[in-house]
Amino acid sequence: MNSILMDLLEKALVSGIVSSVMVPSRGPDNSFPWTLVTDVSALNRVEPVPPVMSVHGAKALASFTQSMPEGKLLAVMRPCEARAAIELSKLEQIDLGNIILLTMDCPGAVPLKEYGEDGTMEPDINRPETLRPLCRQCTEFTSAGDLCLAMHGGLRTVIPLTSGGQELLDSLGMKAESDTSQWKEWANALRGEREKVRAESTEKLKETYSGLQGLVEVFSGCISCRSCRTVCPICYCRLCFIDMKDRRSPASAHLERSRNSGAARLMSNTLLFHIGRMAHMSLSCVSCGMCEDACPSDIPTGRLVSMVSGNTTELFSYSAGRNPEDPLPLNTYQLEELHEYED
C-alpha cells in the first residue's frame, strides 16, 4: 500500500538528498520502534504506519534534534505527531531546520492494551471500534507537516504542503497528482462524521464528570504512575513542578488535611497534578491520545485534556501544530484581550 512512499524514501536516501529517515520499523515481538535509517537496505523493515502508537514520533524526534541536524532528515509520522513536532519546535525542543515532516492520511491506531493481546489487530479508518477513543474523534487526520501521502478519494500520491515539501518532490523528480478534489471531499466527509463523534463524546464527558467532584471521581483510580506525563510529547520538562522537593508537605500538614474532612487521600497531589497538566498542555495539545493509551487505570485522560484544549485553543484562535509561524498564545501579549473573563 505504501509503494509510493517506499519509492520516495529509497530515492531520497540513494540520491543523498536526504541523509537519514526517521520512521517506525518492525521490531521483535510485534513491536514497532522508531528508527533512524541511513542505509537503503534497512528500508525493508520499515512500517510507516504501524497498527499501534508506541512512542510518540515527536518525542522520538526531540530525543536527538535539539540542535539542527547536518544534512536533511526526513521524518515520516502521523499528522498528530508532525503537529506536536511543530509545537515542540516553538517550545525550542526541536530544531526543524533541515527536517522535513511527511505525514499521511492516518488510519488511526489500535489501543495498545488491545493490540498486545494477540498482535493481529489492524486499525480500520471505517471501523471506529478498531481505533483508540481519541482517534475515533480525530478531525486532523491528514495534511500536516511539509508533505502528505494521500491514500483516499482515488488518490495515491504525495502532496506537497509547504515550499520545503515541494522542493523535496522537485529534487527527487516526483510529481504530485493535481486533481485532489475527490480526496478533499473524502476528507471533508470524514471530518464531518468525526466532529459529530467528538461533540457527543464531549457532551458525555461533561455530563459524567462536571465540576470539582466530577474531576475527583474521574481521577479516583489514578495510581500516580505519571505515565500520561512521560508519554505526552508536549510535557517535556525534565523535572515536573509536582515532583519538586518544595512541594512536599510534612506529616502534620497531611494530618490537618485529614482532620478537616475525617480522612485524606494519599498521593495527595493527584488532582493538582492532572489539573496542572491540563493547564500546561491545553494550548499545545494535539489530541494524540498517548496519555490515555498508556494509562494502566483506564482513565479517559486524553479525552478530558483534548476537551479542555478545544476550549482554550478556540479562545485564542490557535491551532496546535498547524502553522510553524503562528506564535504560541502564551508567548504573545495584547493589551486588549479576554475582557469577557474580567470582573
Binding site: S25, L36, V37, V55, F64
Partner: peptide
C-alpha cells in the same frame, strides 16, 4: 546530538530512537 545519533545509525544502517 543529531550528529552522534546519525553516526551510530550509519554504523548500523538503522538505529532505534529514542
Amino acid at each position: 546530538s543529531p550528529e552522534l545519533v546519525r553516526a551510530e545509525a550509519k554504523r548500523k544502517g538503522s538505529l532505534r530512537v529514542p
